[in-house]
Computed example of a mutant assay.
Amino acid sequence: MSYRNTITDQLPLTEHINLVTSKGLKYLHITHPKAQARISLFGAHLLSFTPANSAPVIWMSGDAIFNGVKAIRGGVPICWPWFGPAKESPTVQPLAQTKNFPSHGFARNNHWQLLDSQSTADSCRVRLQLMPSPEAKRLWLHDFNLIAEFIISESLTLNLITENTGNSSFDYGGALHSYFQISQPDAIQVHGLDNNNPAPRALTGDVDIICENPATTITLEDNQLQRRIDINNEGNNAMVVWNPWQAGAKAFADMPDDGYQTMFCLEPAIIGKKAVTVAPGTSHTLTTKLSVTAL
C-alpha cells in the first residue's frame, strides 16, 4: 500500500504492536508470531489480517485512497450508526437535510483515538474509541461512546461496542463491511447465508443482496487457495453480500478494473426497521470472528 513507503514516525507500543505515522495518518502495525495485521486509526479500519503460514484473509484495493477524508476501499470499513443512504435509514432523525449526510454513517470517515493496547505470547489486543464531536452531533443527535476492539491471534475478532452515554434510548444500525480476499470467483462457495436453504451460494456475477436469516457462522470456501474462512457473527440481524462485478468495479476510481475478481464482501449487518435499541447506560456489541482452516 502507498503508506508503507512514506512512514515518518514509528512508536513501539508493545513487543508486537507499533504505532506508525504516514502522511499525517496513524496506523497500528501488528506483527505477532501467530498473525500480522494493519489497522488505520482513520475509521478504526482493519486494512489487513494474515495468519502465520496463510494467504491474506482481507482484500485491500490497490487503488485505495489514504487521505483522511474518503473512506478506504477494502479491508473492514465500520458502517455506523446507519447502513446505506442516510435518507433510507430509520435510525436517522428527520432533520432538515440528509442529502449531504455520508452513506454508511460517519464512523468510517472519522479519526479515532487509541484507547489501549496489549500483547501476550498468544495474541494482541487493541481498542480504539470514537466519541461525539460537533460534526457528529450535526449528523446524529445522541450521546455515545463507540469502541472498536481488535483481538489478533490465529483468528481475528472485531467487537464494535456501542455505548449509550445519554439520558434517552437510541436506535442504531450499521455493518462490519468485510472485504475478503479470494483467488477467483469460480473457485468459491459460501455456506450459511440462509438457514432455511442449506445449499451453498456461488459467485457468478454482480450481487448486492441482504440475507435476513443467516446462520451464526458463514463459511467461505476457496478451492484454489485450499482454505475455508469461518465468519462467526453475533449481534447482527442480517448478512449483506456484495460484489460489484466488472461494470461496478470500473465505476469506482479507488478500485482496479479487475478488482472484483479477487474480492467478495460478506458483511454482518444491523439493518432495516429491526435496528438495535440501546437504553441509557447500556451497550450493544456487534461482533465478527474470522478463522482460517485448510480444506
Score class of each variant (00 low, 15 high):
Leu146Glu: 07
Ser153Met: 06
Leu160Trp: 01
Arg138Tyr: 05
Phe150His: 12
Ala148Ile: 00
Leu156Gln: 01
Ile152Met: 06
Ala136Gln: 10
Arg127Leu: 13
Arg125Asn: 09
Leu141Gly: 15
Ile147Gln: 13
Leu156Arg: 08
Gln129Trp: 08
Ile147Val: 02
Leu158Trp: 02
Leu130Gly: 14
Asp143Ser: 10
Asn159Gly: 10
Val126Gly: 04
Ala136Arg: 03
Pro132Ile: 06
Ala136Pro: 07
Ser155Arg: 07
Leu130Pro: 13
Gln129Met: 13
Phe144Asn: 07
Ile152Pro: 05
Ala148Gln: 01
Ala148Lys: 00
Glu154Ser: 05
Ala148Cys: 02
Thr157Glu: 12
Lys137Cys: 07
Arg138Glu: 10
Ser153Leu: 11
Leu139Ile: 07
Thr157Gly: 05
Leu139Gly: 02
Glu149Asn: 09
Leu146Thr: 02
Ala136Val: 05
Pro134His: 11
His142Arg: 12
Ser155His: 07
Glu149Tyr: 11
Asp143Pro: 05
Asn159Trp: 01
Glu154Asp: 15
Glu149Met: 06
Glu154Gln: 15
Trp140Asp: 02
Ala148Trp: 00
Ile147Asp: 09
Gln129Tyr: 04
Ile152Tyr: 03
Ile147Arg: 00
Thr157Tyr: 00
His142Val: 05
Gln129Phe: 05
Ser153Gln: 14
Phe150Glu: 00
Ser133His: 08
Met131Ile: 15
Leu158Tyr: 00
Glu149Ile: 05
Asn159Ser: 11
Glu154Leu: 14
Asn145Tyr: 04
Asn145Arg: 12
Leu146Cys: 01
Pro134Thr: 08
Leu130Lys: 07
Asn159Leu: 12
His142Trp: 11
Ser133Tyr: 09
Glu149Gln: 14
Leu158Met: 15
His142Tyr: 10
Leu128Glu: 08
Ser133Asn: 08
Ile152Trp: 04
Arg125Pro: 06
Glu135Asp: 04
Phe144Trp: 02
Leu156Glu: 00
Leu160Gly: 13
Asp143Met: 07
Arg138Met: 03
Pro134Ala: 10
Glu135Ala: 06
Leu130Tyr: 01
Asn145Gly: 12
Ala148Leu: 00
Gln129Cys: 13
Lys137Ile: 03
Phe144Asp: 09
Arg127Val: 14
Phe144Lys: 11
Leu139Asp: 01
Arg125Met: 12
Asn145Ser: 14
Leu141Val: 15
Ser155Lys: 08
Phe144Val: 01
Thr157Phe: 01
Leu130Asn: 12
Val126Phe: 04
Ile152Asp: 03
Leu139Gln: 05
Val126Cys: 15
Asp143Gly: 03
Asp143Glu: 11
Ala136Phe: 03
Ala136Lys: 10
Leu156Thr: 08
Trp140Tyr: 13
Lys137Thr: 08
His142Ile: 06
Ala148Asp: 01
Glu154Phe: 12
Leu128Gly: 14
Arg125Lys: 11
Phe150Gly: 05
Arg127Ile: 03
Ile151Glu: 00
Arg127His: 12
Trp140Arg: 14
Glu149Gly: 07
Ala136Tyr: 02
Gln129Arg: 10
Val126Asn: 14
Asn159Lys: 07
